[in-house]
Design a protein around this nucleic acid. Structure first.
Lengths: 218, 218
DNA sequence: ACTTCCTTCAGTGTATACACAAATCCCCGC
DNA sequence: GCGGGGATTTGTGTATACACTGAAGGAAGT
Protein backbone atom coordinates (compact mmCIF):
# COMPACT_ATOMS: atom_id res chain seq x y z
CA UNK A 1 0.00 0.00 0.00
CA UNK A 2 1.32 3.40 -0.92
CA UNK A 3 2.09 5.89 1.79
CA UNK A 4 -0.29 8.41 0.25
CA UNK A 5 -3.11 5.85 0.29
CA UNK A 6 -2.39 5.08 3.90
CA UNK A 7 -2.42 8.77 4.79
CA UNK A 8 -5.61 9.33 2.83
CA UNK A 9 -7.39 6.42 4.51
CA UNK A 10 -6.22 7.46 7.96
CA UNK A 11 -7.22 11.10 7.59
CA UNK A 12 -10.49 10.19 5.92
CA UNK A 13 -11.41 7.90 8.77
CA UNK A 14 -10.36 10.47 11.35
CA UNK A 15 -12.63 13.05 9.74
CA UNK A 16 -15.59 10.75 9.14
CA UNK A 17 -15.46 9.40 12.69
CA UNK A 18 -15.28 12.95 14.02
CA UNK A 19 -11.93 12.35 15.67
CA UNK A 20 -10.74 15.40 13.78
CA UNK A 21 -13.12 18.21 14.63
CA UNK A 22 -14.30 20.64 11.94
CA UNK A 23 -12.09 23.70 11.80
CA UNK A 24 -8.99 21.74 12.71
CA UNK A 25 -6.08 22.88 10.56
CA UNK A 26 -4.10 20.03 9.09
CA UNK A 27 -0.53 21.23 8.91
CA UNK A 28 1.61 19.31 6.47
CA UNK A 29 4.63 18.84 8.68
CA UNK A 30 2.55 18.00 11.72
CA UNK A 31 0.38 15.42 9.99
CA UNK A 32 3.24 13.90 8.06
CA UNK A 33 5.12 13.36 11.30
CA UNK A 34 2.03 11.99 13.02
CA UNK A 35 1.46 9.46 10.24
CA UNK A 36 5.13 8.68 9.88
CA UNK A 37 5.42 9.66 6.24
CA UNK A 38 6.91 12.50 4.26
CA UNK A 39 5.19 15.67 3.12
CA UNK A 40 4.94 14.66 -0.52
CA UNK A 41 2.52 11.71 -0.16
CA UNK A 42 0.66 13.62 2.54
CA UNK A 43 0.02 16.50 0.15
CA UNK A 44 -1.51 14.08 -2.31
CA UNK A 45 -3.78 12.73 0.42
CA UNK A 46 -4.83 16.25 1.41
CA UNK A 47 -5.53 17.06 -2.21
CA UNK A 48 -7.86 14.10 -2.51
CA UNK A 49 -9.64 15.01 0.69
CA UNK A 50 -10.15 18.57 -0.49
CA UNK A 51 -11.45 17.35 -3.84
CA UNK A 52 -14.05 15.31 -1.97
CA UNK A 53 -14.98 18.27 0.19
CA UNK A 54 -13.91 16.73 3.49
CA UNK A 55 -11.31 19.45 3.81
CA UNK A 56 -11.00 22.91 2.32
CA UNK A 57 -7.68 24.36 1.23
CA UNK A 58 -7.89 27.94 2.43
CA UNK A 59 -4.86 30.20 2.33
CA UNK A 60 -2.83 28.73 5.17
CA UNK A 61 -3.15 24.98 5.51
CA UNK A 62 -6.21 22.86 4.88
CA UNK A 63 -9.00 22.82 7.42
CA UNK A 64 -11.51 20.09 8.17
CA UNK A 65 -14.86 21.22 6.80
CA UNK A 66 -17.91 21.56 8.96
CA UNK A 67 -21.37 20.09 8.38
CA UNK A 68 -24.11 22.46 9.40
CA UNK A 69 -27.81 21.72 9.54
CA UNK A 70 -28.22 23.53 6.22
CA UNK A 71 -25.54 21.30 4.78
CA UNK A 72 -27.52 18.25 5.83
CA UNK A 73 -30.61 19.62 4.11
CA UNK A 74 -28.66 20.31 0.94
CA UNK A 75 -26.99 16.93 1.13
CA UNK A 76 -30.32 15.14 1.34
CA UNK A 77 -31.79 17.28 -1.41
CA UNK A 78 -29.07 16.12 -3.76
CA UNK A 79 -29.34 12.60 -2.41
CA UNK A 80 -33.03 12.50 -3.11
CA UNK A 81 -32.40 13.69 -6.65
CA UNK A 82 -29.70 11.14 -7.39
CA UNK A 83 -30.94 8.10 -5.51
CA UNK A 84 -34.52 8.63 -6.61
CA UNK A 85 -33.44 8.57 -10.21
CA UNK A 86 -31.09 5.67 -9.55
CA UNK A 87 -33.88 3.59 -8.01
CA UNK A 88 -36.10 4.31 -11.00
CA UNK A 89 -33.39 3.33 -13.45
CA UNK A 90 -32.62 0.19 -11.48
CA UNK A 91 -36.29 -0.77 -11.70
CA UNK A 92 -36.10 -0.37 -15.47
CA UNK A 93 -32.78 -2.08 -16.06
CA UNK A 94 -31.99 -4.20 -13.03
CA UNK A 95 -32.15 -7.93 -12.61
CA UNK A 96 -35.35 -8.85 -10.76
CA UNK A 97 -33.90 -11.93 -9.05
CA UNK A 98 -31.04 -9.96 -7.51
CA UNK A 99 -33.33 -7.44 -5.86
CA UNK A 100 -35.88 -10.05 -4.88
CA UNK A 101 -33.12 -11.83 -3.00
CA UNK A 102 -32.07 -8.60 -1.32
CA UNK A 103 -35.65 -7.90 -0.36
CA UNK A 104 -35.93 -11.29 1.32
CA UNK A 105 -32.74 -10.70 3.25
CA UNK A 106 -33.88 -7.24 4.30
CA UNK A 107 -37.09 -8.68 5.70
CA UNK A 108 -34.96 -10.81 7.99
CA UNK A 109 -32.81 -7.86 8.97
CA UNK A 110 -34.62 -7.14 12.27
CA UNK A 111 -33.04 -10.31 13.64
CA UNK A 112 -29.63 -8.80 13.00
CA UNK A 113 -30.43 -5.38 14.41
CA UNK A 114 -31.29 -6.51 17.92
CA UNK A 115 -28.02 -8.40 18.16
CA UNK A 116 -24.55 -7.41 19.19
CA UNK A 117 -21.85 -5.62 17.24
CA UNK A 118 -21.01 -8.22 14.55
CA UNK A 119 -24.68 -8.77 13.69
CA UNK A 120 -25.19 -5.04 13.35
CA UNK A 121 -22.24 -4.90 11.00
CA UNK A 122 -23.89 -7.63 8.95
CA UNK A 123 -26.94 -5.40 8.63
CA UNK A 124 -24.88 -2.44 7.45
CA UNK A 125 -23.18 -4.71 4.94
CA UNK A 126 -26.56 -5.79 3.66
CA UNK A 127 -27.64 -2.20 3.08
CA UNK A 128 -24.31 -1.63 1.39
CA UNK A 129 -25.03 -4.55 -0.93
CA UNK A 130 -28.33 -2.97 -1.88
CA UNK A 131 -26.52 0.25 -2.75
CA UNK A 132 -23.97 -1.71 -4.76
CA UNK A 133 -26.69 -3.63 -6.57
CA UNK A 134 -28.38 -0.38 -7.56
CA UNK A 135 -25.07 1.07 -8.70
CA UNK A 136 -24.51 -1.95 -10.90
CA UNK A 137 -28.06 -2.05 -12.22
CA UNK A 138 -28.21 1.52 -13.44
CA UNK A 139 -25.16 0.99 -15.66
CA UNK A 140 -24.32 4.65 -15.57
CA UNK A 141 -20.78 5.29 -14.42
CA UNK A 142 -21.28 9.04 -13.99
CA UNK A 143 -24.39 8.70 -11.86
CA UNK A 144 -22.75 5.97 -9.80
CA UNK A 145 -19.71 8.16 -9.29
CA UNK A 146 -21.85 11.09 -8.17
CA UNK A 147 -23.58 8.88 -5.61
CA UNK A 148 -20.30 7.48 -4.35
CA UNK A 149 -18.92 10.95 -3.69
CA UNK A 150 -22.11 11.75 -1.80
CA UNK A 151 -21.92 8.68 0.41
CA UNK A 152 -18.69 9.86 2.00
CA UNK A 153 -20.49 12.85 3.44
CA UNK A 154 -23.51 10.78 4.38
CA UNK A 155 -21.46 8.41 6.48
CA UNK A 156 -20.19 11.46 8.29
CA UNK A 157 -23.73 12.67 8.90
CA UNK A 158 -24.87 9.25 10.06
CA UNK A 159 -22.33 9.38 12.87
CA UNK A 160 -24.16 12.44 14.16
CA UNK A 161 -27.43 10.60 14.64
CA UNK A 162 -28.32 8.04 17.24
CA UNK A 163 -29.10 4.89 15.27
CA UNK A 164 -31.39 3.14 17.74
CA UNK A 165 -32.86 -0.28 17.05
CA UNK A 166 -36.29 1.15 16.40
CA UNK A 167 -35.13 3.43 13.62
CA UNK A 168 -32.95 0.73 12.08
CA UNK A 169 -35.86 -1.72 11.98
CA UNK A 170 -38.01 0.86 10.25
CA UNK A 171 -35.19 1.68 7.84
CA UNK A 172 -34.81 -1.99 6.97
CA UNK A 173 -38.49 -2.16 6.08
CA UNK A 174 -38.12 0.93 3.90
CA UNK A 175 -35.14 -0.57 2.16
CA UNK A 176 -37.09 -3.75 1.60
CA UNK A 177 -39.84 -1.69 -0.01
CA UNK A 178 -37.33 -0.12 -2.37
CA UNK A 179 -35.89 -3.51 -3.28
CA UNK A 180 -39.38 -4.87 -3.85
CA UNK A 181 -40.30 -2.02 -6.19
CA UNK A 182 -37.11 -2.48 -8.16
CA UNK A 183 -37.61 -6.23 -8.38
CA UNK A 184 -41.15 -5.64 -9.58
CA UNK A 185 -39.86 -3.33 -12.29
CA UNK A 186 -41.85 -0.31 -11.13
CA UNK A 187 -39.73 2.83 -11.60
CA UNK A 188 -42.23 5.32 -10.20
CA UNK A 189 -42.81 3.21 -7.12
CA UNK A 190 -39.11 2.67 -6.59
CA UNK A 191 -38.50 6.40 -6.77
CA UNK A 192 -41.37 7.11 -4.40
CA UNK A 193 -40.17 4.50 -1.92
CA UNK A 194 -36.72 6.06 -2.03
CA UNK A 195 -38.15 9.53 -1.45
CA UNK A 196 -40.10 8.28 1.55
CA UNK A 197 -37.10 6.52 2.99
CA UNK A 198 -34.83 9.53 2.61
CA UNK A 199 -37.32 11.93 4.16
CA UNK A 200 -37.78 9.67 7.17
CA UNK A 201 -34.05 9.25 7.39
CA UNK A 202 -33.54 13.01 7.31
CA UNK A 203 -36.20 13.57 9.95
CA UNK A 204 -34.54 11.06 12.20
CA UNK A 205 -31.14 12.63 11.77
CA UNK A 206 -32.43 16.10 12.51
CA UNK A 207 -34.45 14.90 15.48
CA UNK A 208 -31.62 13.03 17.20
CA UNK A 209 -28.83 15.28 16.03
CA UNK A 210 -26.47 16.42 18.76
CA UNK A 211 -23.97 19.12 17.76
CA UNK A 212 -20.41 17.98 18.08
CA UNK A 213 -18.38 20.27 20.28
CA UNK A 214 -15.11 21.21 18.72
CA UNK A 215 -12.12 19.96 20.65
CA UNK A 216 -9.80 22.91 20.75
CA UNK A 217 -6.37 21.48 21.38
CA UNK A 218 -4.27 23.78 23.52
CA UNK B 1 -0.18 31.69 -10.39
CA UNK B 2 1.15 28.46 -9.03
CA UNK B 3 2.97 26.09 -11.32
CA UNK B 4 0.53 23.30 -10.54
CA UNK B 5 -2.41 25.53 -11.50
CA UNK B 6 -0.72 26.43 -14.74
CA UNK B 7 -0.08 22.76 -15.51
CA UNK B 8 -3.64 21.84 -14.60
CA UNK B 9 -5.14 24.55 -16.79
CA UNK B 10 -2.86 23.69 -19.71
CA UNK B 11 -3.54 19.94 -19.59
CA UNK B 12 -7.25 20.49 -18.99
CA UNK B 13 -7.50 22.69 -22.05
CA UNK B 14 -5.46 20.27 -24.13
CA UNK B 15 -7.82 17.45 -23.22
CA UNK B 16 -11.05 19.41 -23.58
CA UNK B 17 -10.02 20.81 -26.95
CA UNK B 18 -9.06 17.32 -28.09
CA UNK B 19 -5.44 18.28 -28.70
CA UNK B 20 -4.56 15.35 -26.45
CA UNK B 21 -6.26 12.30 -27.92
CA UNK B 22 -7.93 9.74 -25.65
CA UNK B 23 -5.57 6.94 -24.79
CA UNK B 24 -2.55 9.22 -24.75
CA UNK B 25 -0.32 8.36 -21.81
CA UNK B 26 0.81 11.39 -19.87
CA UNK B 27 4.26 10.59 -18.59
CA UNK B 28 5.36 12.72 -15.67
CA UNK B 29 8.85 13.54 -16.88
CA UNK B 30 7.70 14.17 -20.43
CA UNK B 31 4.85 16.48 -19.49
CA UNK B 32 6.83 18.30 -16.83
CA UNK B 33 9.51 19.08 -19.39
CA UNK B 34 6.94 20.10 -21.98
CA UNK B 35 5.31 22.53 -19.56
CA UNK B 36 8.60 23.71 -18.13
CA UNK B 37 7.88 22.74 -14.55
CA UNK B 38 8.98 20.05 -12.14
CA UNK B 39 7.37 16.70 -11.51
CA UNK B 40 5.92 17.65 -8.14
CA UNK B 41 3.41 20.30 -9.25
CA UNK B 42 2.67 18.25 -12.36
CA UNK B 43 1.65 15.28 -10.23
CA UNK B 44 -0.79 17.48 -8.38
CA UNK B 45 -2.28 18.61 -11.68
CA UNK B 46 -2.59 15.01 -12.88
CA UNK B 47 -4.25 14.10 -9.60
CA UNK B 48 -6.87 16.77 -10.06
CA UNK B 49 -7.50 15.72 -13.64
CA UNK B 50 -7.96 12.11 -12.59
CA UNK B 51 -10.33 13.14 -9.81
CA UNK B 52 -12.44 14.90 -12.42
CA UNK B 53 -12.37 11.90 -14.70
CA UNK B 54 -10.52 13.58 -17.56
CA UNK B 55 -7.67 11.15 -17.03
CA UNK B 56 -7.48 7.73 -15.43
CA UNK B 57 -4.53 6.66 -13.34
CA UNK B 58 -4.13 3.07 -14.37
CA UNK B 59 -1.06 1.14 -13.24
CA UNK B 60 1.62 2.83 -15.29
CA UNK B 61 1.11 6.51 -15.99
CA UNK B 62 -2.17 8.31 -16.42
CA UNK B 63 -4.05 8.09 -19.69
CA UNK B 64 -6.48 10.55 -21.23
CA UNK B 65 -9.95 9.04 -20.89
CA UNK B 66 -12.16 8.41 -23.86
CA UNK B 67 -15.77 9.50 -24.37
CA UNK B 68 -17.81 6.87 -26.15
CA UNK B 69 -21.36 7.20 -27.39
CA UNK B 70 -22.56 5.31 -24.32
CA UNK B 71 -20.67 7.80 -22.18
CA UNK B 72 -22.57 10.62 -23.84
CA UNK B 73 -25.86 8.91 -23.09
CA UNK B 74 -24.89 8.38 -19.46
CA UNK B 75 -23.61 11.92 -19.21
CA UNK B 76 -26.90 13.35 -20.43
CA UNK B 77 -28.87 11.02 -18.21
CA UNK B 78 -27.13 12.43 -15.18
CA UNK B 79 -27.36 15.92 -16.60
CA UNK B 80 -31.09 15.62 -17.03
CA UNK B 81 -31.40 14.46 -13.45
CA UNK B 82 -29.34 17.25 -11.98
CA UNK B 83 -30.27 20.18 -14.20
CA UNK B 84 -33.94 19.25 -14.20
CA UNK B 85 -34.00 19.37 -10.44
CA UNK B 86 -31.88 22.52 -10.42
CA UNK B 87 -34.27 24.31 -12.74
CA UNK B 88 -37.21 23.30 -10.55
CA UNK B 89 -35.45 24.52 -7.42
CA UNK B 90 -34.48 27.76 -9.12
CA UNK B 91 -38.12 28.32 -10.00
CA UNK B 92 -39.03 27.89 -6.36
CA UNK B 93 -36.23 29.91 -4.81
CA UNK B 94 -34.82 32.16 -7.52
CA UNK B 95 -35.23 35.86 -8.03
CA UNK B 96 -37.79 36.46 -10.77
CA UNK B 97 -36.26 39.70 -12.01
CA UNK B 98 -32.88 38.08 -12.60
CA UNK B 99 -34.28 35.37 -14.81
CA UNK B 100 -36.67 37.70 -16.55
CA UNK B 101 -33.69 39.81 -17.54
CA UNK B 102 -31.85 36.73 -18.79
CA UNK B 103 -34.89 35.67 -20.76
CA UNK B 104 -35.01 39.05 -22.51
CA UNK B 105 -31.35 38.81 -23.39
CA UNK B 106 -31.75 35.26 -24.68
CA UNK B 107 -34.54 36.37 -26.98
CA UNK B 108 -32.08 38.76 -28.59
CA UNK B 109 -29.43 36.08 -28.83
CA UNK B 110 -30.09 35.22 -32.52
CA UNK B 111 -28.54 38.57 -33.39
CA UNK B 112 -25.32 37.42 -31.76
CA UNK B 113 -25.30 33.96 -33.29
CA UNK B 114 -25.20 35.03 -36.90
CA UNK B 115 -22.21 37.27 -36.20
CA UNK B 116 -18.51 36.64 -36.14
CA UNK B 117 -16.33 35.13 -33.43
CA UNK B 118 -16.60 37.76 -30.67
CA UNK B 119 -20.39 37.91 -30.94
CA UNK B 120 -20.57 34.12 -30.70
CA UNK B 121 -18.47 34.27 -27.58
CA UNK B 122 -20.94 36.79 -26.16
CA UNK B 123 -23.68 34.24 -26.72
CA UNK B 124 -21.78 31.49 -24.93
CA UNK B 125 -21.16 33.90 -22.07
CA UNK B 126 -24.86 34.60 -21.88
CA UNK B 127 -25.67 30.90 -21.58
CA UNK B 128 -22.95 30.64 -18.96
CA UNK B 129 -24.61 33.45 -17.02
CA UNK B 130 -27.88 31.52 -17.06
CA UNK B 131 -26.07 28.50 -15.63
CA UNK B 132 -24.46 30.67 -12.98
CA UNK B 133 -27.79 32.27 -12.10
CA UNK B 134 -29.35 28.84 -11.61
CA UNK B 135 -26.39 27.73 -9.51
CA UNK B 136 -26.84 30.75 -7.30
CA UNK B 137 -30.61 30.47 -7.11
CA UNK B 138 -30.75 26.87 -5.92
CA UNK B 139 -28.56 27.71 -2.91
CA UNK B 140 -27.35 24.14 -2.66
CA UNK B 141 -23.58 23.88 -2.70
CA UNK B 142 -23.53 20.12 -3.20
CA UNK B 143 -25.88 20.17 -6.16
CA UNK B 144 -24.00 23.09 -7.70
CA UNK B 145 -20.73 21.23 -7.24
CA UNK B 146 -22.14 18.12 -8.90
CA UNK B 147 -23.24 20.18 -11.89
CA UNK B 148 -19.89 21.92 -12.14
CA UNK B 149 -18.04 18.63 -12.30
CA UNK B 150 -20.40 17.54 -15.05
CA UNK B 151 -19.89 20.65 -17.16
CA UNK B 152 -16.23 19.86 -17.69
CA UNK B 153 -17.18 16.72 -19.55
CA UNK B 154 -19.99 18.46 -21.39
CA UNK B 155 -17.66 21.08 -22.82
CA UNK B 156 -15.60 18.20 -24.12
CA UNK B 157 -18.65 16.64 -25.74
CA UNK B 158 -19.74 19.93 -27.25
CA UNK B 159 -16.50 20.11 -29.16
CA UNK B 160 -17.51 16.89 -30.90
CA UNK B 161 -20.66 18.38 -32.34
CA UNK B 162 -21.04 20.88 -35.13
CA UNK B 163 -22.69 23.89 -33.54
CA UNK B 164 -24.32 25.44 -36.59
CA UNK B 165 -26.28 28.68 -36.42
CA UNK B 166 -29.59 26.88 -36.81
CA UNK B 167 -29.06 24.69 -33.76
CA UNK B 168 -27.74 27.57 -31.70
CA UNK B 169 -30.78 29.70 -32.51
CA UNK B 170 -33.07 26.88 -31.43
CA UNK B 171 -31.02 26.33 -28.30
CA UNK B 172 -31.30 30.01 -27.41
CA UNK B 173 -35.07 29.77 -27.65
CA UNK B 174 -35.04 26.70 -25.42
CA UNK B 175 -32.88 28.48 -22.89
CA UNK B 176 -35.24 31.43 -22.99
CA UNK B 177 -38.11 29.07 -22.24
CA UNK B 178 -36.26 27.73 -19.21
CA UNK B 179 -35.53 31.24 -17.97
CA UNK B 180 -39.14 32.21 -18.48
CA UNK B 181 -40.42 29.25 -16.48
CA UNK B 182 -38.03 30.01 -13.65
CA UNK B 183 -38.96 33.68 -13.66
CA UNK B 184 -42.63 32.69 -13.55
CA UNK B 185 -41.94 30.48 -10.55
CA UNK B 186 -43.19 27.30 -12.19
CA UNK B 187 -40.99 24.39 -11.07
CA UNK B 188 -42.67 21.67 -13.10
CA UNK B 189 -42.53 23.76 -16.25
CA UNK B 190 -38.90 24.69 -15.65
CA UNK B 191 -38.00 21.04 -15.25
CA UNK B 192 -39.93 20.09 -18.35
CA UNK B 193 -38.34 22.85 -20.42
CA UNK B 194 -34.93 21.65 -19.26
CA UNK B 195 -35.75 18.07 -20.17
CA UNK B 196 -36.85 19.14 -23.64
CA UNK B 197 -33.75 21.22 -24.16
CA UNK B 198 -31.40 18.47 -23.07
CA UNK B 199 -33.04 15.85 -25.24
CA UNK B 200 -32.83 18.10 -28.29
CA UNK B 201 -29.25 18.91 -27.40
CA UNK B 202 -28.40 15.22 -27.12
CA UNK B 203 -30.10 14.42 -30.42
CA UNK B 204 -28.11 17.13 -32.13
CA UNK B 205 -24.85 15.93 -30.67
CA UNK B 206 -25.48 12.36 -31.71
CA UNK B 207 -26.63 13.39 -35.18
CA UNK B 208 -23.63 15.56 -36.00
CA UNK B 209 -21.08 13.60 -34.00
CA UNK B 210 -17.91 12.72 -35.86
CA UNK B 211 -15.60 10.27 -34.11
CA UNK B 212 -12.20 11.73 -33.39
CA UNK B 213 -9.40 9.63 -34.81
CA UNK B 214 -6.63 9.05 -32.36
CA UNK B 215 -3.36 10.64 -33.34
CA UNK B 216 -0.78 8.00 -32.70
CA UNK B 217 2.45 9.86 -32.30
CA UNK B 218 5.42 7.95 -33.77
C1' DA C 1 12.47 -22.31 -32.92
C1' DC C 2 10.49 -21.72 -28.56
C1' DT C 3 10.76 -20.91 -23.83
C1' DT C 4 12.72 -19.17 -19.77
C1' DC C 5 15.54 -16.48 -16.99
C1' DC C 6 18.28 -12.51 -16.34
C1' DT C 7 19.44 -7.93 -17.17
C1' DT C 8 18.38 -3.42 -17.98
C1' DC C 9 15.74 0.58 -18.02
C1' DA C 10 11.89 3.54 -17.98
C1' DG C 11 8.81 5.47 -14.76
C1' DT C 12 6.60 6.10 -10.55
C1' DG C 13 6.73 6.65 -5.23
C1' DT C 14 8.99 8.92 -1.55
C1' DA C 15 12.11 11.83 0.92
C1' DT C 16 14.45 15.96 1.54
C1' DA C 17 16.43 20.42 0.57
C1' DC C 18 15.67 25.03 -0.80
C1' DA C 19 12.93 29.24 -1.90
C1' DC C 20 9.38 32.29 -0.84
C1' DA C 21 5.39 34.31 1.52
C1' DA C 22 2.97 35.58 5.49
C1' DA C 23 2.15 36.15 10.15
C1' DT C 24 3.87 37.01 14.59
C1' DC C 25 6.68 38.91 17.93
C1' DC C 26 10.11 41.64 19.80
C1' DC C 27 12.71 45.71 20.05
C1' DC C 28 13.44 50.39 19.28
C1' DG C 29 11.87 54.98 18.82
C1' DC C 30 8.69 58.33 20.15
C1' DG D 1 3.30 53.21 27.54
C1' DC D 2 2.30 52.71 22.75
C1' DG D 3 3.00 52.24 17.89
C1' DG D 4 5.72 50.87 13.98
C1' DG D 5 9.15 48.32 11.59
C1' DG D 6 12.17 44.62 11.00
C1' DA D 7 13.64 39.93 12.23
C1' DT D 8 12.22 35.39 13.06
C1' DT D 9 9.44 31.69 12.70
C1' DT D 10 6.14 28.86 10.51
C1' DG D 11 4.31 26.80 6.56
C1' DT D 12 3.59 26.13 1.78
C1' DG D 13 5.43 25.70 -3.21
C1' DT D 14 8.90 23.69 -6.02
C1' DA D 15 12.90 21.09 -7.39
C1' DT D 16 15.69 17.19 -7.28
C1' DA D 17 17.82 12.96 -5.71
C1' DC D 18 17.14 8.25 -4.62
C1' DA D 19 14.69 3.81 -4.20
C1' DC D 20 11.72 0.41 -5.96
C1' DT D 21 8.85 -1.92 -9.15
C1' DG D 22 7.24 -3.69 -13.29
C1' DA D 23 7.98 -4.40 -18.03
C1' DA D 24 10.59 -5.32 -22.10
C1' DG D 25 14.37 -7.18 -24.49
C1' DG D 26 18.05 -10.27 -25.23
C1' DA D 27 20.71 -14.38 -24.48
C1' DA D 28 21.09 -19.13 -23.42
C1' DG D 29 19.37 -23.67 -22.90
C1' DT D 30 16.33 -27.30 -24.52
Amino acid sequence: MRASDKAYAALRDDIIEWRLAPGTVLTEVEQSERLGISRTPLREALGRLSAEGLTAAGGRGVVVTDISLEDIDELFELRETLEGRAAALAAERGDAATFEQLRRELLHAPELIGGAEPALQAYYDLVGRLDAAIDAAISNAYLAQAMRSLRVHLVRVRRLAADDAERLTAAAAEHAAIAEAIAAGKPRLAEAATTVHLHRSLSHVKATHVPHQKEHHG
